[in-house]
């Protein structure tokens, strides 16, 4: 408990971390609520209002795109899709990575050697190109995007969890527990897992922006989220095509995407600093 309250003090002391968290919460809330408030929807085209610049009138605060669709609603929708894809993909990589890494680390020896050999091999592969290949072969399937991104990101998580578990397993307090006759299940639950939690939280936070990056990369190339659905990457792609006529169609989604990524990275970095400080204390 004492450790917890000390952490709270430190969290509040880290300004970048707090500001990032607030921005992310506000952005997510806007993405949820925004489309409900706006009189427009994301689908209706309006050929009289093509490429209208942002204005407060009519609630066209982000303007319209080349088909006259409302960009505010589409952007909020894009954020929603981007965040959902990233969070689900991160959960996929979390589950695979933690299970894989913990098993390799806890059992060690030959099991670990074989399992990590596989990870090393996968690491050397140009995954993003495989994902593109996957998208080509299986027709830009929405579900596939989660799987593909999760499949890339679990490698990092597995390595980190494995390294931590391995070093925890070698720690003397685990030996002491084994000597006393504490069961493997209890050792994992009481001695290893609690000491692993901090690292996992930090790396999940850092996995989310990576997942966002992959998703928006695919969507930008036209291989990810398909029209009329949209994501921030797809919106940036559309904006690039209007770059000379309507720069806001590029700048608005680009800025929001950059801001979200920046906030997640600051959040992860800040949490990692807190964790390091606790471990070196």
């Amino acid at each position: 408990m004492i450790a917890m309250s000390a952490s709270w003090e430190k969290i509040r002391g880290n300004r970048a971390l707090v500001v990032s968290a607030v921005i992310l919460i506000v952005t997510a809330a806007a993405a949820m609520i925004g489309p409900l408030i706006s009189p427009h929807d994301y689908l209706s085209t309006n050929f009289e209002e093509m490429l209208r610049a942002p204005t407060m009138a009519d609630m066209r605060i982000f303007g319209t795109d080349d088909l006259g669709r409302d960009l505010f609603v589409r952007t909020m929708l894009g954020i929603r899709v981007t965040l959902i894809v990233a969070i689900i993909a991160s959960i996929v990589s979390l589950v695979i990575g933690v299970a894989y890494g913990a098993i390799a680390g806890y059992f060690g020896g030959r099991v670990d050697a074989v399992m990590m050999r596989l990870v090393d091999t996968l690491y050397a592969m140009p995954f993003i190109f495989f994902v593109i290949l996957l998208m080509v072969v299986f027709e830009r399937n929405f579900l596939l995007i989660f799987v593909a991104i999760g499949a890339i990101n679990w490698l990092d998580m597995a390595r980190i969890v494995r390294g931590q578990t391995l070093s925890l397993r070698e720690r003397e307090f685990v030996d002491a527990a084994r000597l006393t006759g504490v069961s493997s299940a209890r050792i994992i639950a009481r001695h290893i897992a609690p000491n692993l939690a901090g690292v996992v939280v930090v790396y999940v936070t850092l996995t989310i922006p990576q997942a966002i990056l992959v998703e928006s990369f695919l969507s930008f190339l036209g291989l990810g989220i398909q029209e009329p659905q949209t994501s921030l990457g797809a919106l940036v792609d559309a904006g690039v095509n209007q770059i000379e006529r309507a720069s806001w169609t590029l700048l608005i989604p680009a800025t929001l995407l950059a801001m979200i990524l920046l906030c997640f990275n600051f959040l992860g970095d800040g949490l990692r600093d807190l964790l390091d400080a606790r471990q070196t204390r």
Partner: peptide, 22 residues
């Protein structure tokens, strides 16, 4: 540097084009 890491290349490239070319 943090900004550079966070902003994807498909955002950087078009924005640079917009700024320096357009």
């Amino acid at each position: 540097a943090m900004t550079g890491i966070s902003i994807p290349i498909f955002v950087v490239a078009p924005v640079l084009v917009l700024l320096f070319a357009v």
